[in-house]
């Protein structure tokens, strides 16, 4: 369905100079630096997948999305999506995709949401009948009944994002690109948006590619993550693998009856210690949690023990560190 092979892209950026003399010089001459935004990116995505596309700011996420949605032309490489080359057959191709830029709106600010939908219907030349059934479905599943008649400026951020997503689905796209769809939303709205993404993926078989900084999005939605940093592909696989590979650390918190002797257990590191509680970070490859607990119970009178997996967020931070991105 989606196939990228050896995609590379570089930008030239003019150096901004400060200072009066520099500024005067720059009137006539500008220095440029070349930035390799993408280096030899290849991956394939099958129909019906939900793929989380992650990486720190400036890693090249949005450049990839822009190439895949036909906005940008890469320097080299091949990209075939549903048989089209996005940047060559732009107008034909984009009928099949929906794009949500989380930080920008495609709705008209001062008119009722429904008017924006109608205009999009005309832009995409959606037949009236089809539009009717799609819009009814969208309104129902996204619970927009109350808000479609109000102008966008009166909507909350969460309501607006739901409308944005609906707007990008009016033409029944086969693929949808979501660029930070949950940015700035409160917890309830985030869950609603995630739920809906799941629904359209399950029921319509829409392929979803989403970029996000919120690892909960990834955890809730994506079966697969693609990690990119400094323009190179670093990891492509499912979330469990990632966890197994990098998430060998667990956190053990133990409460015990007052004990002033310091506790040291091989293969662990104490994150915090008080006479009543210790928090240990353990590497499961070196020592099993059960061994640690045995060790602890030998030394102190245990009152409560909890074991946590390292949150995905931390894994990602660790990954970024490891790859130095």
């Amino acid at each position: 369905m989606i196939h990228l092979e050896g995609i590379s892209k570089s930008y030239k950026i003019a150096k901004r100079s400060s200072g009066l003399r520099q500024a005067a010089k720059a009137l006539f001459y500008r220095e440029h630096t070349t930035i390799n935004a993408l280096k030899d990116i290849s991956f394939s995505i099958k129909q019906g997948e939900i793929v989380g596309y992650i990486g720190p700011n400036g890693a090249g996420k949005s450049t990839t999305i822009k190439i895949m949605s036909g906005i940008l032309v890469p320097d080299t490489g091949k990209c075939t999506i549903m048989g089209y080359t996005p940047w060559k057959d732009r107008t034909q191709y984009v009928k099949n995709i929906g794009v949500v830029f989380g930080q920008r709106s495609q709705l008209w600010w001062d008119v009722p949401v429904i008017d924006s939908f109608e205009l999009l219907k005309d832009i995409y030349k959606v037949p009236q009948q089809e539009y009717k059934s799609t819009i009814d479905l969208l309104i129902e599943t996204l619970e927009l009944q109350e808000i479609v008649q109000s102008p966008v400026r009166q909507l909350s951020l969460g309501q607006r994002m739901r409308c944005e997503i609906a707007a990008s689905l009016i033409h029944n796209p086969k693929i949808i690109f979501l660029d930070e769809p949950t940015i700035g939303l409160d917890a309830v709205s985030k869950i609603a948006v995630r739920q809906f993404i799941k629904t359209i993926n399950k029921e319509k078989g829409v392929t979803v590619i989403l970029t996000t900084h919120d690892m909960n999005d990834i955890e809730a939605l994506a079966d697969r993550v693609i990690l990119i940093g400094k323009g190179t592909l670093l990891y492509d696989g499912n979330l469990e693998e990632l966890r197994k590979q990098f998430g060998t650390t667990k956190i053990i918190t133990a409460d015990y009856a007052k004990n002033t002797d310091p506790i040291q257990i091989p293969g662990t590191a104490a994150l915090s210690w008080t006479p009543e509680r210790i928090v240990l970070s353990i590497d499961t490859e070196r020592v099993k949690p059960s061994e640690v607990i045995t060790h602890l119970s030998n030394k102190v009178e245990l009152l409560d023990v909890t074991i946590e997996t390292k949150p995905i967020e931390d894994i990602i931070v660790q990954l970024y560190k490891e790859y130095q991105i």
């Binding site: 822009k66 949605s69 036909g70 906005i71 732009r90 107008t91 034909q92 984009v94 009928k95 995709i97 794009v99 830029f101 920008r104 495609q106 832009i123 995409y124 030349k125």
Partner: peptide, 13 residues
Amino acid sequence: KGEFDRLLVRPRS
């Protein structure tokens, strides 16, 4: 504002 990208993902001139 980067809005031009939006126009490019639509099937019109």
